[in-house]
Design a binder for these strands. Structure first.
Lengths: 149, 149
DNA sequence: CTACAAATGTTGTTTAGACAAATGAAAATC
DNA sequence: GATTTTCATTTGTCTAAACAACATTTGTAG
């Protein structure tokens, strides 16, 4: 659907058209992913932290590493991790080498939860982009790369 | 910057690559626009409501209309509008024809604020997409349109 | 060594978002 | 015309985000 029709507006300058398209589409993706995660009682942010930790392949990550890799850089990653610890999906230990740091890792329970969730999120993403060809994906991601510098 | 490099991951399946690219880029846009709005002490959501009301060209809008057109459909548009009313940027009157509805319109002060803000936001958007050609904008927005159906 | 600065997280506080329930007005049904 | 349904918005409540202030450990310069 054209962004102008969706937002009932017209004559958007190109820069605004593109930025609104990206924002509205991102919102749609968020809504759909959040809905898929809901049965598992986990938020998108929490899900992302779990995926980051899994990507560490056993190595624990400290808070600033997680924060760097998060889609949305919110300031209180501490409390986000607190939630995951309360659910026993992650663990936190104080780093021995540098006692300012903490080392956070995903638990077995966390890995199992991800294994359950992954196919659902994959399905949502595939469903959303079903009309986009692989070639188009390349073009679009390249353009978006340029926006993110 | 490639999304894999940015998130320090690799071998993303195409659907996830695209969806992450969109989400991360949207986040970047949000951050930049929010920063531009900060001096005016107004949030992105509030800014969007003001633009929607301006788009009405004098005609007031009711709450559900605003909600439909918002980028992110949050549930308490009431309180969002309350904030704008407190700042005297909008007005709310109960609709005479259908007393369930309310009619919301932008004030002169609101219009003036928009006039001040617009060039700043335009500049942010242009700066962000400076490396994208008009042709590319067309291609990308078309693809995003397909995601939003 | 001591003091000062930087790094790394945590906590406090205020504001916004999600979601359900409630309110009140109009429309529909019996 | 009274009762029920639906509509449009508001309110309540709980959780999350923004942002600043604080705490603790480490690094460094005199």
């Amino acid at each position: 659907m054209k962004i102008e029709d969706q937002l009932k507006t017209n004559n958007l300058p190109p820069a605004r058209k593109l930025s609104l398209s990206i924002l509205v589409t991102a919102n749609l993706i968020d809504e759909n992913v959040a809905a898929a995660l809901k049965p598992f009682d986990i938020s998108i942010q929490q899900f992302n932290v779990l995926r980051i930790l899994r990507g560490q392949k056993g190595k624990p990550a400290n808070l600033s590493t997680i924060q760097e890799r998060m889609v949305s850089k919110m300031s209180n990653t501490t409390r986000l991790v607190d939630k995951l610890i309360a659910k026993e999906l992650t663990e936190r230990i104080v780093c021995e080498a540098n006692r300012r740091k903490v080392e956070i890792s995903i638990t077995e329970k966390g890995l199992e939860l991800l294994k359950e969730i992954d196919p659902k999120v994959d399905a949502v993403e595939k469903e959303l982009i079903q009309d986009i060809t692989e070639e188009e994906i390349e073009i679009v991601t390249n353009c978006l790369n340029k926006i993110r510098k």
